[in-house]
């Protein structure tokens, strides 16, 4: 790797002489970016460290980066009973189904709305965009979901609302915009139907878009806790991972600050290391998704640079 770097430097150096100012900027750049990147990762390392520390050590000595004696105690507790694996199964299912379904709908809609000859496209675009301007708010939404749709204690209450957003559809439109209209025209000349054109000609060109928007959707599902907190009561034993994490973290807080605390014994309140172990397990896989889609993702953001 170091070799490569030298090569790069030599190359650019051979073309134009590197000035002192370039050296300063570059040196400072390496320094600052390294520092900043470390700062981004640092809190995660502390969490991982804490999750391997025993509770008594945390209480006595505080949180440290590297535990004196590593213990798997907290992880054993989290894994105990197997509930966490069921949560995994649920979250993975929701993420996969939601991303695939959402992506399909968003891609179709985005394509249709970008077809210059489609007379309804402005109307429908506005219909969709309007929803991001005006929302009814929490109370009417909650009552609708529970009283009209009867989605309380149903995973659909978590699954459905995250399928798409106006912003993702606009993003998809921008991607499609970059594809020349002639491709659609040529498909028409060949006598293909709209669906056929979309699947055969357009979709293959949308790979960066699908990767980018797919990643957004997947993140949305994986990191979901809010809908769950509204709609999944304790009747549902298996909860999405982040909500499980949210519960573990906030239970202690809720009890400490209320009269209700009198009804609960201290031993039932989750410990610090347990929280951290849950955090590590609940976050884990999604972080490793990024390197796989990085290539497309960065390209994707470029096209969709403008957030709606």
């Amino acid at each position: 790797m170091a070799k490569n770097k030298d090569l790069d430097l030599m190359e650019s150096g051979s073309k134009v002489k590197i000035g002192i100012s370039d050296m300063i900027i570059r040196g400072f750049g390496y320094f600052f970016v390294t520092l900043y990147a470390l700062a981004c990762v640092f809190p995660f390392l502390i969490i991982i460290g804490t999750s391997f520390t025993s509770e008594t050590v945390i209480r006595a000595e505080g949180v440290k980066l590297i535990p004196k004696e590593a213990t798997l105690q907290a992880y054993e507790m989290v894994v105990h009973g197997g509930l966490i694996w069921k949560s995994y199964g649920l979250t993975i299912t929701l993420t996969l189904c939601g991303t695939l379904l959402g992506l399909s709908i968003i891609a179709m809609t985005g394509y249709a709305l970008q077809r210059k000859d489609f007379p309804l496209r402005n109307g429908i675009s506005f219909y969709i965009y309007f929803t991001s301007l005006f929302s009814a708010g929490l109370a009417p939404y909650y009552l609708l979901m529970t009283q009209t749709y009867h989605l309380k204690d149903s995973y659909f209450a978590v699954f459905l609302p995250l399928l798409m957003s106006p912003w993702l559809i606009i993003l998809m439109k921008n991607f499609v915009k970059a594809i020349p209209h002639e491709i659609t025209e040529s498909g028409k000349i060949d006598g293909a139907g709209d669906m056929r054109i979309f699947i055969d000609l357009i979709l293959p060109m949308l790979k960066p878009a699908l990767a980018t928007i797919g990643l957004f959707l997947a993140l949305g599902y994986w990191n979901e806790w809010y809908q769950s907190s509204l709609f999944l009561s304790s009747r549902i034993a298996v909860k999405p991972l982040q909500f499980q994490l949210y519960k573990v973290v906030n239970e202690a807080q809720a009890l400490k600050n209320s009269v209700a605390g009198q009804y609960v014994s201290v031993s039932d309140i989750p410990t610090e290391s347990l929280k951290m172990a849950t955090a590590v397990l609940a976050t884990g896989p999604i972080v490793f998704l990024y390197p796989f889609v990085q290539k497309y993702f960065i390209g994707g953001i470029t096209v969709g640079a403008v957030k709606g």
């Binding site: 470390l38 995660f44 979901e224 806790w225 994490l245 955090a279």
Partner: peptide
């Protein structure tokens, strides 16, 4: 590598941010 590291915080849930 530095971009990957800088992206890490963008990927996590707000719940985890609170914990961190």
């Amino acid at each position: 590598v530095s971009q990957t590291m800088m992206f890490l915080p963008y990927f996590i849930s707000q719940v985890l941010v609170g914990i961190l």
